[in-house]
Amino acid sequence: MTAAAAEASLGRALVEEATKKSGLIWVRGTGPARALWHVWHEGAAHLVGDGPGEQPFPPGLTDGSVAEVTVRSKDKGGRLVVWTADVAELAPHSEEWEAAVGELKGKRLNAPDAEWMPERWARECRVLRLVPGECRARLPDDSLAAAPLPTPATTRRPVPAGLPRLLKRGRKG
Results as ranks from 00 to 15, higher is better:
51 G>S: 07
7 E>T: 15
138 R>H: 12
68 E>P: 00
130 L>V: 07
155 T>I: 00
47 L>D: 05
53 G>T: 01
52 P>Q: 10
57 F>K: 00
146 A>W: 01
147 A>G: 03
26 W>T: 02
148 P>R: 08
117 M>Y: 15
28 R>K: 15
127 V>P: 06
76 K>F: 03
63 D>H: 13
124 E>C: 03
17 E>K: 12
18 A>G: 07
108 R>D: 05
146 A>L: 03
81 V>S: 03
65 S>G: 01
96 E>V: 01
142 D>K: 05
170 G>F: 12
39 V>C: 07
67 A>S: 06
165 R>Q: 15
19 T>D: 08
92 P>L: 10
109 L>C: 08
3 A>V: 15
145 A>G: 07
77 G>R: 02
127 V>D: 02
90 L>Q: 04
84 T>H: 13
159 V>G: 03
1 M>C: 12
47 L>M: 06
137 A>E: 14
111 A>I: 08
87 V>F: 03
157 R>M: 09
114 A>E: 10
14 L>D: 01
45 A>T: 05
74 K>I: 02
17 E>C: 09
150 P>L: 10
49 G>T: 04
80 L>R: 13
11 G>E: 01
42 E>H: 11
29 G>F: 13
7 E>H: 12
85 A>P: 06
118 P>E: 13
142 D>Q: 11
173 G>P: 08
44 A>Y: 04
131 V>D: 10
93 H>D: 15
69 V>R: 02
64 G>M: 04
134 E>W: 01
119 E>D: 09
10 L>G: 13
70 T>A: 09
54 E>Y: 13
16 E>W: 03
169 R>A: 15
72 R>F: 05
150 P>F: 11
122 A>N: 02
82 V>R: 14
73 S>P: 00
47 L>V: 09
53 G>W: 07
127 V>C: 07
150 P>Q: 12
42 E>S: 12
68 E>C: 00
98 E>K: 15
122 A>T: 08
116 W>S: 14
70 T>L: 02
157 R>F: 03
105 K>Q: 09
36 L>S: 10
137 A>L: 11
86 D>C: 00
157 R>E: 10
84 T>K: 14
154 T>V: 12
42 E>K: 13
103 E>F: 04
68 E>Q: 07
5 A>P: 04
121 W>T: 00
90 L>F: 06
131 V>C: 07
108 R>H: 13
73 S>N: 11
159 V>Y: 04
141 D>P: 11
86 D>V: 04
99 A>K: 14
53 G>I: 06
12 R>C: 02
73 S>H: 07
30 T>C: 05
